[in-house]
């Protein structure tokens, strides 16, 4: 007998060591997330994957599944809160989708679509953030960084480098790169590194590949992120 948890009233199996996110994904249930990626150590910072475990809010991507858990995921309350958290991510940065190459392929935008987010709700911060176009092949637009640390983890865990890090405290958090000049061109980042391709938003882009797929024909223009996410992430465990 395999162990099970209850997810929105449905019994699903899990294996020891699995997080709630992993168990849900394996069972074909999508839990919204941005900082989580099945290939890397879970981070638990975006808080979009918050689920109620026996009445208590937990991050599904870091919380271990355990026998007898009653987990709520797809509730109106959680959806509303997730929308507000997504709106927080939008207002703290500068997310001008019409002028962003990632539009249509952007997970932040896709999660917003999925949650039927139509406005920013909160006052906008309009922080002053820079771009780093120094690297011959890769561009950083700090305006779009959501501090998910996927590039940090991909560089460390997959590429065996330490190109990226998150620095600063509180609302002053920002992405930094590992070079004396502080510029991307002086790091050992290669355009083929996983870290250069992992960004869920348009903060890290590969140069000279823009608009190869027209706006309107991109991934999330016609497919919801729950479907896309399950399709790509379910295979990972196998």
């Amino acid at each position: 007998m395999s162990k099970t948890i209850t997810l929105d009233g449905k019994t699903i199996p899990f294996e020891d060591g699995q997080t709630i996110m992993q168990a849900a994904t394996a069972a074909g249930v999508y839990i919204p997330h941005l900082c989580h990626h099945p290939e890397f150590t879970p981070h638990g910072s975006c808080k979009l994957c918050t689920v109620k475990v026996n009445g208590r809010n937990c991050s599904a991507c870091t919380f271990p599944a355990a026998e007898g858990q009653d987990v709520l995921n797809n509730t109106q309350e959680l959806t509303d809160d997730r929308k507000k958290i997504t709106q927080m991510l939008f207002v703290e940065g500068n997310h001008f989708c019409p002028s962003c190459e990632k539009s249509g392929n952007c997970q932040l935008q896709a999660v917003a679509y999925h949650l039927n987010m139509l406005d920013d709700h909160f006052p906008l911060f309009y922080p002053h953030r820079e771009m780093d176009a120094s690297h011959p092949d890769v561009l950083i637009d700090h305006n779009r960084c959501i501090f998910c640390t996927l590039c940090v983890r991909a560089s460390r865990e997959h590429d065996g480098k330490d190109v990226f890090a998150i620095s600063g405290r509180g609302i002053n958090k920002h992405l930094i790169v590992n070079s004396e000049s502080g510029q991307l061109k002086d790091t050992d980042l290669d355009m083929h590194d996983k870290a250069a391709h992992i960004c869920p938003t348009g903060a890290i882009l590969i140069k000279r590949t823009g608009y190869q797929v027209p706006i309107g024909q991109r991934i999330y223009d016609h497919h919801e992120i729950d479907e896309v996410s399950l399709l790509t992430e379910q295979h990972h465990g196998e």
Partner: peptide, 18 residues
């Protein structure tokens, strides 16, 4: 009703905010 990106988040004109 706020119609379009600029009404909702300032949009392109708001890029002068920096």
């Amino acid at each position: 009703v706020a119609v379009g990106a600029c009404a909702i988040n300032g949009g392109l004109p708001a890029m002068r905010n920096f």
